[in-house]
């Protein structure tokens, strides 16, 4: 499967790899948001009509457009807010409790 991480976790081998000073390079993302979720959005591709609403309205941009009709959720950064499932008119996204996945 494609790696959906927009920015791979930077490797720190020594202290000198940690950015110094009050600024750092853009898109320097060191940790994920995955543990924020209580409910996880699960996509049923047979119901998806490719309306793009989930991809458009995700506040975290965690739903990636792979193709005009193929959308994938980056569970490393999805916070489980449920906007995608709420906006999905055909009901292709359902929110499932994390321990029941």
């Amino acid at each position: 499967m494609k790696d959906f991480k927009m920015s791979p976790r930077p490797l720190w081998k020594s202290l000198s790899d940690v950015p110094m000073g009050s600024s750092c390079s853009s898109f320097h993302i060191c940790d994920t948001n995955a543990a924020w979720r209580v409910f996880r959005p699960v996509m049923d591709y047979s119901l998806c009509i490719g309306c793009h609403q989930c991809y458009l309205l995700c506040p975290d941009g965690a739903i990636h457009k792979e193709d005009a009709k193929v959308f994938r959720i980056d569970y490393d950064f999805c916070k489980g807010c449920g906007i995608c499932a709420n906006q999905c008119k055909p009901g292709a996204i359902s929110m499932v409790k994390e321990d029941q996945v």
Binding site: M6, W36, L56, G61, G82
Partner: peptide, 19 residues
């Protein structure tokens, strides 16, 4: 939604869910 840039410029932020 179909013709906007698919690249994300704001990613991995720590805003509350549903912000």
């Amino acid at each position: 939604a179909r013709n906007i840039d698919a690249k994300e410029c704001f990613y991995g932020h720590k805003a509350c869910g549903g912000c």
